[in-house]
Amino acid sequence: MSEATFTLDGKTIPFREGQTIMQAAMAAAAYIPRLCYHPGLKPHGSCKLCTVKVNGRHTASCTYQAQPGLAVESDTEELNGERRSLLQMLFVEGNHFCPSCEASGNCQLQATAYELKMMTPHYDHFFPDRPVDASHPEYLLDFNRCILCSLCVRASRDVDGKNVFALAERGIKTRLIVNAESGLLADTNFSADDMAAHVCPVGVILRKRTGFSVPIGQRTYDINPISALPQPKAGES
């Protein structure tokens, strides 16, 4: 019997039973924009960047199971326009000042915005007040850049078994918190070996004393656009 397949923008993608559209696409080296999905963690389906059209209906490709014969659209003007609007909302909700950010050039939010040709954040900026947490001797938390993808929450809870991070409150008030009575990272058992220390797609969880060590022009996404890089596998950050 031939392998089960579906089509993504007309291209045939093979899949194994139980795989999501995102997993099958990544295995076939086909790029679907994403920010809250990581192959080593359970999908969250919250950033909606990976929204595709399956048989004409919108769905998150990281949570939708692949089925034989599906016609999936991803790289279309309509979907990329919607993704650009989502990115613009993420940019104005936080404080994303790329020129002074240590993650610039290695940031998935920035690289995805380049990929989708976001020329402006378009909306009015919130300019929220989010103090940083520099209490930990090795790591800094700069909440200004948090996009609430929950990757650190899932990595710490499901892989590290530590529950260091959580998303508190609801809706527009949702924010990343640290699970300690003081609310400070220094008062947790967070360590540099944790998956949570390496999974942040933006510039929130930063290792101290290593910032700006790679010169402009040699950073991850200076060299290749995010769509052209090898797709990460489970176990890689």
Partner: peptide, 18 residues
């Protein structure tokens, strides 16, 4: 035409906004 980070998102001067 809006040119550069400061025109586009306030840039460095906007870091006083909080």
């Amino acid at each position: 035409i809006s040119v550069g980070a400061c025109a586009i998102n306030g840039g460095l001067p906007a870091q006083r906004n909080h």
